[in-house]
Design a protein around this nucleic acid. Structure first.
Lengths: 229, 229
DNA sequence: ACGGCTATGTCCGTAGCCGAACATACACCT
DNA sequence: AGGTGTATGTTCGGCTACGGACATAGCCGT
């Protein structure tokens, strides 16, 4: 069977994948909200390209990024533990494609206690570590580091150097003012790390971007490798 | 059977509790580190009094609070998903008592797929929501709100109005400078919300403390009620 | 009673970010 | 080609917290 492009699915044994394959629907996602906070989660999302974000809503109307999901993971993980009501927003931030599995089919599959359940339980550890790292990051690191971190995640998700992303969206995810992003992005551009124009960002020097980022990007990668690699 | 004092355990059916009871060891905890990051998790901790914190380590040596565990929860939750290596520090911040369950006995019990496993899977949703809220909180709220939030959590854990806690520890948990806590705590004292002296804090006006706190305290309570209440 | 440790109070200059407004300029649509 | 909407650039004062230092004072030991 051909690889799906999603790492969680592609690590499953052949028979599990064969059973799941006909239940998966491939869908193109732009920049759009997939699930609003407090809404019902209708699907589990397995990205193959693009970037999905988990956003925590605040009373003042803002929503802050707490984790991202690319082709290495799954969005809608609370379904695994029987909760089909979203506490957080699930937003497609970078256009791409995802494999969708209806909540009912998902529940049936993980109820079998097979490989997918085991895989997702481990993935939940990774996600929890990522969220915890974000919490520490938001308390300890400055905007330049956090922006570089986020751009690396975007770069990974997009799987190409150039992807659609506005400063407005970046500011919203980090919970900072848009002019702050404008200024910080400008220094990254002046240093040759990135280029951008009206809604499009291009990564020019990924290595330097990793240096500009805080440790949190590397920590996330390492945790994934430690638990699921 | 008498109530253990830990809400997770006390919600279990009688036969599950009877099976677990002889395996639990009651232990007094002061202000001490229970598990260092990267160390083996030897026990699951079910607090009955006191407050345990989950701390995310940073490269610079600091550790930031990402969640707290009181008598409503359990520390060492990664054991549930088969990970016995701690990514985060587990620290007893406020003296109290916990029921300890050895990792091997814990694994055997949750391997049965009984009530404890179900309960803990739901609790993991609560914990994940709490960590996500901390991430948003650290990005969006000022020190006064965050300190009030933390003091409320301490108050809940201690179960009395007066408990041992230094400004140094508070500063470490929030990832801020100690003089900042000194100044902020002073304003709370001037307003009559708390009193303190050398390592001891007293909550005088809990209602006002809730008003001074950000929404994050109430959100945490609500999520617990929604998922486990 | 005394000395020493630790917790707390206080100060200062500086950095980072907020909050808000306004100016510019690109891209799309007609 | 022109108009419109949106993305980006830029400025400003003000506030919060940093980072580091030093002073005070309560508590514990001997």
């Amino acid at each position: 069977m051909a690889a799906s492009g999603n790492a969680l699915l592609d690590r499953l044994p052949g028979d599990d994948r064969a059973r799941l394959a006909p239940l998966l629907t491939r869908m193109s996602l732009g920049h759009e909200t997939l699930v609003e906070p407090t809404a019902r989660i209708r699907y589990a999302y397995f990205p193959v390209r693009g970037l999905i974000s988990i956003m925590a809503p605040l009373e003042d109307g803002r929503s802050i990024l707490v984790a991202t999901v690319g082709s290495e993971g799954m969005a809608g993980l609370t379904l695994l533990f029987g909760s089909s009501t979203a506490r957080h927003g699930i937003v497609s931030e970078i256009a791409g494609e995802s494999l969708l599995l209806a909540a009912s089919a998902f529940a049936e599959e993980v109820g079998r206690g097979g490989a997918l359940r085991t895989e997702l339980e481990r993935y939940s550890l990774v996600l929890m570590a990522q969220i915890a790292q974000t919490a520490a990051c938001n308390a300890a690191h400055v905007m330049r580091q956090r922006l570089a971190h986020l751009l690396l995640l975007c770069h990974d998700g997009a799987q190409v150097d150039t992807f659609g992303m506005t400063q407005e969206f970046l500011a919203g995810m980090l919970g900072v003012q848009r002019p702050g992003i404008s200024h910080t992005a400008d220094t990254l551009r002046a240093e040759g790390l990135i280029a951008y124009r009206r809604g499009t960002i291009q990564v020019l020097d990924r290595r330097a971007l990793e240096s500009a980022s805080c440790e949190c990007y590397a920590v996330g990668q390492a945790e994934y490798g430690r638990i699921l690699g």
